[in-house]
Simulated scan of single mutants.
Amino acid sequence: MNFKFVHNNLNVLDLERSLQFYQKALDLKEVHRLENPDFTLVYLGDGGSSSHELELTWLKGRKEPYNLGENEFHIALTVDDFEAAHARHKEMDCICYENAAMGIYFISDPDGYWIEILPEK
């Protein structure tokens, strides 16, 4: 038996705002989408370095923010130019936590989800 990661899901309140954020902050692009009268699913990819996708779910009738608890969970991405990524995210004002001792930081998306940024090893 062989399990393989396919995607992670995040629910978003404003699909267009989230798509713009993930494109600008992480260079993720739409791979495919599923339209439904009640919701839209958009799958984002990194352009080929990984087959793993990020699924953004937009529940069209939802108006209240999602309860993210204490942000105990997160997704993580590596980047080949850590300094340039950090500068981009600092300019976007989306860095929410830094751990210089570990050499990592986190950014927060428009819905408050945390994304860990790691240097490529």
Results as ranks from 00 to 15, higher is better:
residue 49 S to M: 06
residue 49 S to F: 08
residue 89 H to A: 01
residue 17 R to P: 03
residue 14 D to R: 00
residue 87 A to P: 09
residue 23 Q to Y: 08
residue 73 F to I: 15
residue 113 Y to P: 00
residue 51 S to H: 13
residue 5 F to L: 09
residue 94 C to H: 01
residue 40 T to P: 02
residue 96 C to N: 04
residue 62 R to L: 04
residue 7 H to M: 06
residue 40 T to A: 06
residue 23 Q to P: 01
residue 119 P to Q: 02
residue 23 Q to R: 11
residue 88 R to T: 14
residue 40 T to G: 00
residue 72 E to T: 13
residue 39 F to L: 10
residue 20 Q to V: 15
residue 14 D to F: 00
residue 111 D to G: 08
residue 115 I to R: 05
residue 77 L to A: 03
residue 11 N to Q: 08
residue 74 H to E: 09
residue 79 V to Q: 06
residue 52 H to I: 12
residue 85 A to P: 09
residue 68 L to P: 04
residue 82 F to W: 01
residue 114 W to V: 04
residue 77 L to P: 00
residue 83 E to C: 07
residue 69 G to M: 09
residue 36 N to S: 15
residue 6 V to C: 14
residue 89 H to I: 10
residue 85 A to S: 04
residue 36 N to K: 14
residue 112 G to D: 00
residue 3 F to D: 08
residue 9 N to H: 13
residue 50 S to R: 13
residue 79 V to T: 06
residue 76 A to G: 00
residue 19 L to W: 02
residue 113 Y to V: 14
residue 86 H to M: 10
residue 7 H to T: 08
residue 94 C to N: 09
residue 70 E to Y: 13
residue 5 F to R: 11
residue 2 N to P: 10
residue 13 L to A: 08
residue 113 Y to N: 01
residue 33 R to L: 09
residue 4 K to S: 03
residue 43 Y to C: 07
residue 84 A to S: 06
residue 66 Y to W: 00
residue 99 N to Q: 11
residue 99 N to R: 12
residue 11 N to G: 06
residue 35 E to Q: 13
residue 119 P to A: 05
residue 115 I to Y: 05
residue 72 E to Y: 11
residue 75 I to L: 10
residue 58 W to I: 06
